[in-house]
Write a protein that binds this DNA or RNA. Structure first.
Length: 122
DNA sequence: ATGTTGACGGTTG
DNA sequence: TCAACCGCCAACA
């Protein structure tokens, strides 16, 4: 086990499982990966996607990951936030005027522990 | 090995 | 309700 899957890779694998039309939060993703306090790291993994060119990283639905309260939390340019809102609306997720999604309505059920383990190849 | 950095999250004022 | 702080944790320089 000299080559544990990098945390970021786990994040990507899990985010790819989020079906269209629903969302989750950075914290929930971190929790599913058994690292309850690594929400920030999940966000970091998402931001790292911007620089990726490989097609393998282009199919990751990063727009379905929001803040714990359903709000788009991207810092930096407003352009990024606007794009995320647009992508979400395209798949049927309603985004409020203040870039907020009703997480109670669109929340993804998530994966069970054993499903996560299976996904990560143990 | 040590310090800095973040697309977070919960608490506090 | 909103803003500021502080604690978490892996990736990177």
């Amino acid at each position: 086990m000299k080559k544990p899957i990098a945390f970021n890779e786990k994040v990507y694998a899990l985010v790819r499982q989020i079906p269209p039309g629903v969302v989750t939060s950075y914290g929930r993703v971190a929790k599913m990966l058994d690292s309850p306090g690594a929400a920030r790291q999940v966000g970091f993994a998402m931001s790292a996607l911007k620089g990726r060119r490989d097609p393998a990283y282009q199919d990751i639905p990063w727009q379905r990951v929001l803040g714990h309260d359903g709000k788009i939390v991207i810092k930096g340019s407003d352009h990024g936030r606007f794009r995320q809102a647009e992508l979400l609306q395209e798949e049927g997720v309603e985004v409020g005027p203040d870039f907020k999604v009703d997480i109670e309505v669109y929340l993804w059920e998530g994966l069970l522990p054993h499903e996560v383990a299976s996904l990560l190849g143990k």
